[in-house]
Structure formats: C-alpha cells, structure tokens
Amino acid sequence: MKPAHGVWALILFLIIAHQDIWFWDDTTLVFGFLPVALAYHACISLAAAFTWYLATRFCWPSDQAPSAQGRDTA
C-alpha cells in the first residue's frame, strides 16, 4: 500500500472515531477536571494535527517544486 493511501485511510478513521457514541452519557472527569467527552475530542484534534502532518508529506497536491515557488521567510 502506498503511504498516501494509508494517510487517507487514517483521515477516514478519524471521521469515524469522531462519532463516539460510546462516551455519550459518560460523566467521567479525566484527571479529575476534564469531562471525558471533551478530553476525547481534544485527543481527536491532536490526532488530526498528526494526520495532517503526514498528509503534507505523502499526499501533497501541488506538483510545483519548492525551488520554483520562491523562498518562505515570514
């Protein structure tokens, strides 16, 4: 399997994992202060950032070489 396919599979998994009906009526406080519904979705945000990092490495849609695009400094 190409890395790009793996990244798209990971994105699909994130979308499915986002529907966490298993925590719907759970009142647990993670670390004693963070409601589990919030903690779980904060982890989804972290996982999304990692997945998008992989996407920029393996699924980049631009075929322009960086050298042809000028340098970024800001």
């Binding site: 950032a49 920029t56 960086p66 695009q69 000028g70 970024d72």
Partner: peptide
C-alpha cells in the same frame, strides 16, 4: 507566497 506556505496552517490549525 508559495504552495509550501500552506503546510504550516494545515498541520497547526487543529492544534
């Protein structure tokens, strides 16, 4: 400035 400029926003936005 370039397509490369999008990489940082894509990764950091969820954070």
């Amino acid at each position: 400035r370039s397509a490369e400029s999008f990489k940082l926003p894509i990764v950091a936005h969820p954070l």
